[in-house]
């Protein structure tokens, strides 16, 4: 990424709930890196913690909200975007961020994701893709790569996976991006641009589940998994996947789509204002 700004004054301790430490993530899990990048981006944008609302769903990703020193809401499985839609409409003064996972947002909550993309309400959705249901012990997810072993694919995964970014863009998301956790500065920069975007922004973070997915598939420890993710990056892969819907080993990263579309909250408030009785409000 270009234009990455180094900000040595960022101290994550100012943005997390120290009394909730130690956290419960496994050693080597990529989610912590994503959390750090997110908070760094929030810091650099000068978003006040009191005005920050973080809404998460269920799964390993869902637990991250509890560690953030902000107004945090750990909701039901698959539904954080639905809760966040109500919260953001009720409180346009808040900066609403959704943290979700591949199972949370692409399987049980898939409908909410595509409609959030279509609606274009001002939300930032960070999806942590670790290709597995980690919290429940390692079952196949909608992004599990081909042939991988999970507790529910003992003979290897035979289902094709989603390309979440293409899904989001096709559904109308006005900002779509992807990054791997190894490139933390690039990830921070991508999240910063997503947070700045006026409308629905979707960022897929390629995370890694070392303890369950890595072990089960002999992918090595965290450094090996992260290096292989980086080695898989192929900036031209996006939109070049017609024949094979999902190729996890051909990751396009960076900002993958960005369009200017009317932001839903503003459009709705303008339409509502037209229905107010004359002389009022």
């Amino acid at each position: 990424m270009k234009d990455v700004t180094q900000t040595p004054d960022f101290d994550i301790n100012g943005y997390i709930r120290l009394d909730q430490m130690p956290h419960f993530l496994c050693p080597g899990c990529g989610h912590g890196i994503a959390l750090r990048a997110l908070l760094w981006a929030i810091h650099d944008l000068g978003i006040e913690k009191d005005k920050l609302a973080v809404v998460s769903g269920i799964g390993c990703s869902g637990r991250l909200s509890a560690y953030i020193d902000a107004n945090t809401f750990h909701t039901t499985h698959g539904r954080p975007l639905a809760f966040a839609t109500g919260l953001a409409l009720a409180r346009p003064d808040l900066h609403v961020v959704v943290i979700t996972g591949d199972g949370d947002s692409l399987a049980i909550g898939g409908n909410h994701l595509i409609h959030a993309c279509r609606r274009n309400l001002n939300l930032t959705c960070m999806m942590l893709n670790n290709e597995i249901y980690g919290m429940t012990g390692g079952q196949v997810s909608p992004t599990t790569s081909a042939d991988r072993f999970t507790t529910t694919t003992p003979a290897g995964n035979t289902e094709p996976g989603f390309d979440a970014c293409r899904l989001a863009e096709a559904a109308g998301a006005s900002f779509v991006g992807r990054e791997v956790t190894l490139q933390v500065l690039a990830l921070k920069d991508l999240l910063q641009r997503a947070l700045e975007h006026d409308g629905f922004s979707f960022v897929e973070v390629i995370s890694d589940c070392t303890e369950i997915y890595g072990r089960k598939n002999d992918l090595g420890a965290s450094p090996e998994m992260m290096m292989s993710q980086k080695a898989s990056m192929r900036p031209d892969a996006y939109r070049n996947t017609v024949d094979v819907p999902f190729r996890p080993n051909a990751l396009a990263t960076g900002i993958l789509a960005k369009v200017d579309r009317p932001e839903y909250g503003q459009a709705l408030r303008a339409a509502n204002a037209r229905q107010q009785p004359a002389g009022k409000g």
Partner: peptide, 15 residues
């Protein structure tokens, strides 16, 4: 499901 979620979300915001 989403409509119930959004209602709870709005109430979390104080409405």
């Amino acid at each position: 499901i989403a409509s119930m979620g959004a209602v709870i979300g709005a109430s979390m915001g104080g409405l």
